[in-house]
């Protein structure tokens, strides 16, 4: 049987997805990217092959995406993560009109049309505010684990507003808020609000039509998701592993290419 693979080499994690010839997900794997993208891609592929219990030669076509897509020597094609996230999200949730992807280094909002096609998109600028990196820096300052932030913020009764947009300024603002004995959960909630506000401009620029899917590592943070849903006035689609949506889109492209070629 033929299989198709998508590999998304991101700044923090590298994700791989294998599809069957019927475009069913056979397996996925997530590894840390580390210092070498090519090694990470190899590792993710090896992992997903083992998971699917197949061998490399059974893979007919591989599409690479993500920042490190150029460092995947064994890929047949390279496509940007924008196209891949759009397609992946559309595949999972066919009513998706908008994808909000908040990753470790960047965030983007994509307008998705018929068949998972990109109609419009926007990305954050150089600044780290509005990305996973912002939360990472703050988690560090607050001495809480990054993956606990979501839970903590949901417990907060109130919210401490964070006025600075710049990551560096916000960092010193957080330090003084801590010194003023504001509860950590309330500060975290304020930080989540700050990210959501930052991403909101991009959402407005692209517009919301139909269902909204959230992808990327930050979509695992329930606190951010809850605030985003509040702002949107609707619930969002989430995959259990929101990081793999890009790799899924890449795998779908690999599969599609074989369909049209065949």
């Amino acid at each position: 049987m033929d299989y198709f693979a998508g590999i998304d080499v991101g700044a923090l994690s590298t994700d791989a997805v294998i599809l069957t010839a019927g475009s069913e997900v056979a397996a996925y794997s997530i590894v840390e990217t580390g210092a070498n993208s090519t090694d990470a891609a190899e590792e993710a592929l090896a992992g997903v092959l083992a998971e699917a219990e197949i061998v490399r030669s059974q893979i007919k076509r591989i599409v690479a995406t993500g920042y490190g897509r150029v460092s995947v020597p064994f890929a047949d094609k390279r496509v940007t993560e924008i196209s891949c996230h759009a397609l992946g999200a559309y595949h999972l949730f066919p009513d998706t009109g908008t994808v909000i992807d908040i990753g470790g280094q960047d965030s983007k909002v994509i307008q998705v049309g018929e068949g998972g096609k990109v109609l419009n998109f926007t990305m954050n600028d150089k600044c780290a505010a509005g990305t996973g990196r912002f939360l990472e820096v703050m988690a560090n300052k607050l001495q809480v684990a990054l993956d606990e932030m979501g839970e903590l913020s949901l417990r907060a009764g109130r919210e401490v507003p964070i006025s600075s947009v710049c990551t560096v300024f916000a960092e010193s603002e957080v330090v003084s808020l801590v010194a003023q004995n504001h509860p950590t959960e309330e500060i975290i909630r304020g930080l989540h609000r700050s990210i959501v506000n930052r991403v909101w401009n991009m959402v407005k620029a692209v517009g919301v039509n139909g269902g909204v899917a959230m992808t990327g590592g930050v979509a695992k943070n329930r606190g951010v998701v809850a605030l985003m849903e509040e702002k949107l006035g609707q619930s969002v689609h989430l995959h259990e592993e929101p990081q793999v949506v890009g790799a899924l889109g890449a795998a779908l492209l690999a599969w599609r290419a074989s369909q049209s070629a065949g």
């Binding site: 006025s163 600075s164 947009v165 710049c166 300024f169 010193s172 603002e173 330090v175 003084s176």
Partner: peptide, 9 residues
């Protein structure tokens, strides 16, 4: 726009 203002600095 006090979002670019740093009280501490």
């Amino acid at each position: 726009d006090f979002r670019v203002y740093s009280e501490e600095q």
